[in-house]
Simulated assay, not measured.
Amino acid sequence: MSSVILFNKPFGVLSQFTPEAGHPALDQFGFPPGIYAAGRLDHDSEGALLLTDDGKLIKRLLDPKFEHPRTYLAQVEGKITKEAVQKLMQGVTFKGYRSKPCTAEIATEPEWLWPRNPPVRFRANIPTSWVRLTLIEGKNRQVRHMTAAVGFPTLRLIRTRIGNVELGDLQPGQWRAVTEKIL
């Protein structure tokens, strides 16, 4: 029987078991032996990360042809517009790549949101806003590239859902066994 774990990856932690370049890694969170990250989140992103000992599941989650959905909340610099959200939904071009259409909507800062350490830089004369995106692809730093392409750089990025598995009330550094169907 394979095991699947949902982990709320804290800001600054690498999605690997070996620390590198001064960043802590997954080895410090007490996971059962033999599991591996099924995908990744950059060290400066937070939220849902799946870990498993099921190689076939990892392959399926990482293979772009399966187009499994991943939902993100992004805090962006500036007051995001409906026009920018529309562009995100249609797909944008970054680094010579055109993103697939996605779902996107203006969001509010969630009540359940934990403080980030270190906090997002605050600038009195530049407001921030939130956008929720659900993508079916996972290029390197894609959400950050997409929001920047429409004029709203990402300041904070939290993955809240992978397939059918939602982060829920897991706090940074906490994990639980996944019992629900993932895809």
Rank of each mutant, 00 (worst) to 15 (best):
M1I: 09
F7I: 04
N8H: 15
K9P: 11
K9D: 11
V13F: 13
S15Q: 11
Q16S: 13
E20S: 14
A21K: 15
P24Y: 05
A25Q: 02
A25M: 02
L26H: 07
L26K: 06
D27S: 15
Q28V: 10
F29E: 01
G30A: 05
G30N: 03
P32I: 10
P32G: 09
P33E: 13
P33R: 12
G34P: 05
G34Q: 06
G34A: 06
I35A: 00
Y36P: 00
A37W: 00
A38T: 07
R40A: 03
L41S: 12
H43R: 12
D44M: 12
S45N: 10
L49S: 00
L49M: 01
L51T: 11
T52G: 02
T52D: 01
T52E: 02
T52S: 14
D53M: 09
G55Y: 04
K56Y: 03
I58K: 15
I58H: 08
R60E: 13
L62F: 00
F66N: 15
R70C: 09
R70N: 10
T71A: 08
L73Q: 13
Q75T: 03
Q75P: 08
G78S: 07
T81L: 06
T81V: 10
E83P: 01
V85A: 02
M89N: 05
Q90L: 13
Q90P: 04
V92Q: 07
T93S: 15
K95A: 14
G96H: 01
C102H: 05
C102Q: 09
T103S: 15
A107I: 09
T108R: 08
T108V: 14
E109V: 05
P110F: 13
W112D: 14
W114D: 15
P115V: 01
R116Q: 04
R116V: 03
R116T: 04
N117C: 03
N117P: 00
V120S: 06
R121Q: 14
N125W: 05
N125M: 02
N125C: 00
P127Y: 09
T128Y: 00
T128V: 14
S129D: 08
W130C: 00
V131R: 06
R132L: 10
T134A: 03
E137Y: 04
G138I: 04
K139Y: 12
H145N: 08
H145T: 01
A149L: 01
P153H: 10
L157N: 13
L157H: 14
L157M: 12
I158F: 08
T160K: 06
T160W: 03
T160I: 14
R161Y: 04
N164C: 11
E166D: 13
E166P: 01
G168Q: 08
L170Y: 06
P172F: 12
P172D: 12
G173T: 04
W175N: 10
A177W: 03
E180H: 00
K181D: 11
I182Y: 03
I182T: 08
